[in-house]
Amino acid sequence: MGSFRRTRGKAKEEGWRARSAFKLLQIDEEFDIFQGVKRVVDLCAAPGSWSQVLSRKLYVPAKLNPKSRDGDLPLIVAIDLQPMAPIDGVIQVQGDITNARTAEVVIKHFDGCKADLVVCDGAPDVTGLHDMDEFVQSQLILAALTIVTHVLRVGGKFIAKIFRGKDTSLLYCQLKLFFPRVTFAKPKSSRNSSIEAFAVCEDYSPPEGFNPKDLYHLLEKVGSPSGTGNLDCSSAWLEGPNKVYIPFLACGDLSGYDSDRSYPLPKQANGSYRSLDPVQPPIAPPYKTALEMKKASTGLPLDQ
């Protein structure tokens, strides 16, 4: 059995909806991102593996603590355009992360307070054209900043999936406008052949006088000849002999799950291994309409 499939099997055995749960766990092992977190937002959350991690690491331990009161329980808000099956302690919001109104809904759930942590494992459907995939993914991250600049407290953290490529330095400098510490990390559970990595942004500190409405106007200045004042993100820092060097870290304990490794199959009572069903099939897959149209036009059952 291939290593990629095997790691997915490990996720099923541990009850995770997707193997991406291991990536967030390994990021936490390296950066301790959950320390002191009481309010967290999961962007592009479906099918919910990162929300599961947040629930198990934050909400469930607090719920099981006999000293905890209802008002002390961590608050987790998951946002996606698609609905997903319920997760203990997770509030679901169907919304668009590019819309500031979605941020207002989140803050309302937090009783007017702001989040300690925002995570985003969202990604577009990849084409295999790395430059295009990198560009579209960077635009998704900047869209996520629309929410971050509205809901994240000063000093908070932001974790987002990135695709590494020729414009990675530009994205790094854009994130540095808001976070003094930005590290691009590669969890062990992320395949070596993948251009995927994760931006770990710490200590949220927006520029003085920053208005979230001016987000894209500010981002457009990064890499332009005029630069961005004293933020050291002018074009001279993005190319040539003065090119900025990005902190990059491979994270995850050596004993942690590795997507490029095969694991021995667990022994079953009858001596054979039975393939596991998905922990949680999608409840509203984007291809559902296509299947229904196919059934209507051909008379075939949905599974054919």
Rank of each mutant, 00 (worst) to 15 (best):
F31V: 11
A197K: 05
P212K: 09
S20W: 06
S255Q: 13
D116L: 11
K38C: 03
K267E: 15
R261N: 10
S3R: 05
C44E: 03
P212M: 14
Q52K: 04
S169C: 12
K267W: 13
S255C: 08
P47S: 01
A185V: 11
P83R: 13
Q92V: 14
L25S: 03
G155N: 04
V154N: 04
V93W: 00
N270L: 12
V105N: 06
L219F: 10
T289H: 14
P74M: 08
M84H: 04
V279N: 02
K108P: 06
V53W: 05
L64H: 08
G156A: 02
R56E: 13
L291K: 14
A269V: 15
L129Q: 10
Y273G: 05
A199C: 03
L175D: 00
L300V: 12
E292M: 13
G155D: 03
I141Q: 08
A100Q: 15
P180A: 05
P61F: 06
S275V: 12
S189H: 05
K57D: 00
H130L: 15
E30A: 14
D303I: 11
A85M: 11
T149V: 15
S169W: 03
I159C: 00
P247N: 03
K157L: 07
S262E: 15
S272L: 10
H109E: 07
N230T: 12
G122N: 10
V37F: 05
I76A: 00
A284W: 11
L117C: 02
K176T: 04
I33M: 07
E202R: 13
